[in-house]
Design a protein around this nucleic acid. Structure first.
Lengths: 219, 219, 219, 219
DNA sequence: GATGAATGAGCCTTCATTCAT
DNA sequence: AATGAATGAAGGCTCATTCAT
């Protein structure tokens, strides 16, 4: 037989669980609708309807429409940080060191394209959001790549500015070919991925121009 | 003494001029305000006040707020097309062939940053605008660069896929380092320009990797 | 102690009641204001204020100002149809057969004068409303009177065209003396009623000219 | 050779003529458009376009939109007063005494239906207009008929209340069958005219029911 | 806690009126 | 005197937010 207290705990758990579910549903609905119609043009009623719950909940859970937007923004920024570095195996060529994170990131951007649309929209209007996007977005990938290249640096003697430039360039290419072109401008996704890959190769070649080809070909 | 006809012409000219001035003022105000607050959050009153004329004029000239947006969109798309190719001198190195259009474009993007914010905003919400941005935006620069590289191709024997990838990569870098990072995410502009330039160098090197070293070795 | 179900029922009832009350209040306010200022010149704000509720409710309940007008139009047209025929007792003289419906109708028109003003206004501007007014308005009363006269026809041998003309004439007199003159043109109501009654007598006499005088003389 | 003064006079005449023409055109346009769309829903721009002149003229000539309405109202009320009585020949039967003015009036109402629509619209909204319509409208015809009947009275010994009732009834029938039913409610015009005529006959018969038969019997 | 009906501030738009030419 | 471009007040309608149930 369960104690009263335990029953209450269960109830709270259920409640909290119910609440967490609804919150997630609302955030997901908001991402979807903000992404396609824009934040301003999306009504709280639409969001509630899409999430399958009542309009008032938005204000209970998130205080306001803007609060929901804040929840949307923090829903993705927190967890994605660490995923990248951990999931990537070390590879044995410079080209692979660039291609692998790029591949991973291009796919992630496609998955998160709705969130990215919202984030980009708002970053253009709100400097505060712009700042957080700046730290969590391009810098993240560039840092990971730069670290990898630096690990590669010693034997090859890569220039530090070159590492900086190359890693940031790859980060930029991920954004453009992984998100902007296919998800916003309607480019064919396979083609953009291919172009991105080719571009990565060229950059890798440019980073250590004499290295691979010469040694490889000469031997 | 002025003839009647001339007076009438002057009158028409003045009137048309007055109207054209006001239209331009409204379009400029709209670009500025749409860019900073977003299209939806900008009220027609604000636009009229910022442009220094009455609200009704927006509807007289542009039919509706959306009509003003259309005017905004076509205000930049029409003329910029041809400017790029014509203003650039031919240069004697591959690196220069890439750096020059990039330099030109990065500066242009900074000048047009407000317009670009509006265009990007709307492209994310309206597939029709997305399509026109796609054709007038990235494709334009990539084409110019690709043509230049192709002129360079014969003596060097550049691969066609490489040209495609490199020119599109440079186009992407222009967007990110010329607009997105400095104008949206608040990066320092000089730094982004430097990174862009370095990246262009790397790409140029990567495009013709055997070039400098090989010729050097050949001699 | 009331059961949960009953409480819920009460709640629904109260809610539905509350809504029905507000709807009626809005429709009544609209009739009153449309009648005195005209449909176009009446603002939704005025209507809401007069009805004692908020402006947004008009659009929630009736979709638009025009929707409220439609509600106004159907608020009276539906129920009045059958009332007339059923409430009138059969009488024993031709004159009474005409006077009774006329009396009933003249009073009804006065009661509904505001609605009639709105209906007449809109019928002049909207052929669709004109059509419905035509079927529900003059035709209704004329039909009732004609039926009564036809029941009287056999013993008297009334001409069918005469019945048609007389019943339509009475219907017209009701409109003019029951509504137009007192409610629109500001005639004294008692006088117009008296004139209507006298006119009805004349028509009754004209319908069966030899009838009454002859029988009167026979006694 | 014409003197300077005469030339100026001609010019004034032409000018005044031009102005009078334009005024008439504006009034006619206003009647047409007020009648079909209503006063409020008709824009001054539409009126000016329909009349073929500029919008500003309305305010120059009539001071305001309402001033144009006043001009519309007085454009018909002044001249129609006297026409009726003068154009009708004396007839030799009671029935003809009623049918002739009715015929005349029913046709006139059809011709003036647009003006009548405007007048009726405004009379419902503005007591001042209602009063003038009341004096110029129903009273006019009723008076003419009553006078005619009174001329007929002496030999027949008609009751004064009957004359009052009958003439007002005919006036009412003219309005309903000459204007309201055909021009507002969309009834077939020929049918309404026929019904009106038949009703007039019945009233004539009712006015002097015993006349033909009774006098025959009395002798 | 959850609901959704009610609120009202504020938007886009229209249009009578003014005024410079 | 005539034009029609410019004005700005006010209307219908939407929608984030509140609150009674």
């Amino acid at each position: 037989m369960r104690s009263k207290q335990q029953a209450a705990t269960d109830l709270n758990a259920r409640r909290r669980h119910g609440r967490a579910d609804r919150e997630r549903a609302l955030v997901r609905a908001a991402i979807k609708l903000f992404a396609s119609h824009g934040y301003e043009a999306t009504t709280t009623r639409e969001i509630a309807a899409y999430a399958g719950c009542s309009e008032g909940l938005i204000h209970r859970y998130f205080k306001s429409k803007e609060g929901l937007l804040r929840a949307v923004m923090s829903s993705h920024t927190s967890q994605r940080m660490l995923e990248l570095a951990e999931h990537l195996p070390v590879s044995d060529s410079l080209e692979e060191e660039m291609r692998q994170p790029m591949y991973w990131e291009v796919n992630r951007m496609w998955q998160d394209r709705n969130f990215l649309r919202v984030a980009l929209q708002r970053a253009m209007l709100d400097p505060k959001i712009a700042r957080s996007v700046r730290h969590l977005g391009p810098a993240r990938l560039a840092k990971v790549i730069a670290d990898r290249l630096r690990n590669y640096q010693n034997p090859l003697g890569l220039d530090d500015d070159d590492i900086e430039a190359a890693s940031n360039a790859v980060s930029a290419l991920c954004f453009v070919f992984g998100f902007l072109r296919p998800a916003v401008l309607g480019y064919d996704r396979k083609e953009t991925k291919q172009v991105a890959e080719n571009a990565a190769k060229i950059i890798a070649r440019g980073l250590a121009p004499a290295k691979r080809p010469l040694t490889a070909q000469r031997t």
